[in-house]
């Protein structure tokens, strides 16, 4: 159990999202980076749908109210417990009275704090993913108590994980979608040739892209019927400005979509920081299906990415504070 001492405005609980309610207008939501969810779950030996705290920007400071085990994944942050550094992409024991400080994101936009046993959060339409702009759940605020859902007593060892490679992708793969044909060939070619920048106007709903040159539009763009939108769609707003739609995107909309980013590339574009440069390429459905199958398989084998942490005694301030043997210290003294 943790108490939030300070936190940035748009951090929230997320699991893998809600399925089955899009006919009521509910977005899929869920963590912007599903690899980070899987990595946290592997480190803590629990379900990838366990609720984690998704942190943005400068993270937060937490007071540890009782002994617990956590994992840190996603965009790397500077992490410490009582000012002693904690490795990222690793699991750690925290003890009552510790101050956990997570700050300064380095290589991305979404970082994750996982708790062994999962965080306890209100389940709305079968998911604990908050989407406050849609009236579902709340952003995490100072003084919130972040409790554990399941009390897991069996001690496990701390581990580190080799993260999935997703922080330096620059070319994103698209498949054609039902509205691709509304754009003429010249527009599609120009889109593929264009280098875009990630705008700082981005959220869990979508990433805005900017570029030099004219916009990308279809004829009669403002009168196209509103239709299904899915995460990964690249939507062109009124002036032909592209938006990459993410987990919290609306379920329907009228601006045309030129294509859809394949799911394994979506966490990567969500993680890109402002001013990063990106390009797009279309791939055939068969190739996309093959990539997804490989991705699914590597997620099934995620435990192979875990290993015992290598600790450098030189960097440890107080060796006795570290649990060098195993989780035995975790059992209530």
């Amino acid at each position: 159990m943790l108490e939030v001492m300070s936190i940035l405005g748009f951090s929230s609980f997320q699991d893998i999202g809600r399925s089955g309610f899009r006919s009521l207008g509910l977005s899929r939501s869920g963590a912007a980076d599903y690899y980070a969810m899987a990595e946290g779950a592997a480190l803590l030996d629990q379900s990838p749908n366990s609720t984690a705290l998704e942190l943005i920007g400068n993270g937060g400071i937490f007071n540890v109210l009782e002994d617990c085990m956590v994992a840190l994944t996603g965009a790397t942050m500077l992490a410490s417990a009582d000012q002693k550094p904690l490795a990222w992409n690793a699991s750690h024991y925290l003890y009552k009275g510790n101050i956990l400080n997570l700050t300064t994101q380095q290589n991305g936009r979404y970082s994750y704090l996982h708790l062994r046993g999962g965080f306890k959060a209100p389940k709305i339409f079968n998911s604990c993913s908050a989407q406050p702009v849609a009236g579902i759940g709340q952003y995490t605020r100072p003084k919130d108590i972040l409790a554990q859902l399941e009390n897991k007593q069996d001690p496990i060892e701390c581990q580190k994980i080799e993260p999935f490679n997703r922080f330096d992708l620059t070319t994103f793969r698209l498949v054609e979608s039902f509205q691709t044909k509304l754009f003429n060939q010249e527009t599609i070619e120009r889109f593929i040739d264009t280098e875009f920048s990630i705008d700082n106007q981005s959220s869990r709903g979508g990433v805005k892209l900017t570029h030099t040159g004219s916009g990308f539009s279809t004829s009669n763009q403002l009168k196209i019927l509103s239709d299904v939108i899915v995460p990964g769609d690249i939507q062109m707003t009124g002036f032909g400005q592209p938006f990459v739609l993410l987990a919290d995107c609306q379920t329907m909309g009228g601006y045309p979509r030129i294509g859809c980013i394949i799911p394994p590339d979506l966490p990567a574009i969500a993680q890109l920081k402002p001013d990063k440069k990106v390009k797009f390429k279309f791939i055939a459905r068969e190739e996309a299906n093959r990539i997804v199958a490989e991705d699914t398989k590597s997620l099934e084998l995620i435990k192979r990415r875990c290993s015992a942490p290598i600790r450098d005694p030189e960097k440890m301030e107080d060796l006795l504070d570290f649990n060098l043997i195993d989780g035995a210290v975790w059992a209530k003294d």
């Binding site: 899009r22 009521l24 207008g25 849609a134 009236g135 509103s226 609306q250 379920t251």
Partner: peptide, 11 residues
């Protein structure tokens, strides 16, 4: 005609 965009929203 449909519910969509955001929760419960009618077109």
């Amino acid at each position: 005609m449909t519910i969509g965009f955001s929760p419960g929203q009618p077109y």
